[in-house]
């Protein structure tokens, strides 16, 4: 089984934990159980691990980044 893993790093000064949590919740609601999300904190960065059973579709990561930023700005 082909799995794809991505690690996204978000600076805690620019992205709040809450906005990332809400983004994960939103994407989980759409893509679970095919795509698994996990967030941890490493120093001043939040790390979001994304593991997918299949290849992530084009623009998936970018949409995730945009949505996180959008929630943060609101």
């Amino acid at each position: 089984m082909e799995t794809n893993a991505q690690l996204l790093r978000f600076n805690s000064a620019l992205y709040s934990k809450e906005s990332l949590r809400r983004t994960i919740k939103e994407f989980r609601g759409i893509y679970a159980p095919e795509i698994f999300f996990k967030m941890t904190q490493k120093g001043k960065y939040f790390e979001v691990g994304i593991v997918s059973e299949k290849k992530l579709e084009n623009g998936f990561v970018e949409e995730f980044l945009n949505y996180s930023l959008f929630l943060n700005i609101q």
């Binding site: 790093r9 600076n11 980044l65 945009n66 930023l69 700005i73």
Partner: peptide
């Protein structure tokens, strides 16, 4: 500014 461009662009910020 990011909010204005978020429809047309994918934006990522870091510091």
């Amino acid at each position: 500014t990011c909010y204005v461009f978020i429809d047309k662009m994918y934006i990522y910020l870091d510091s």
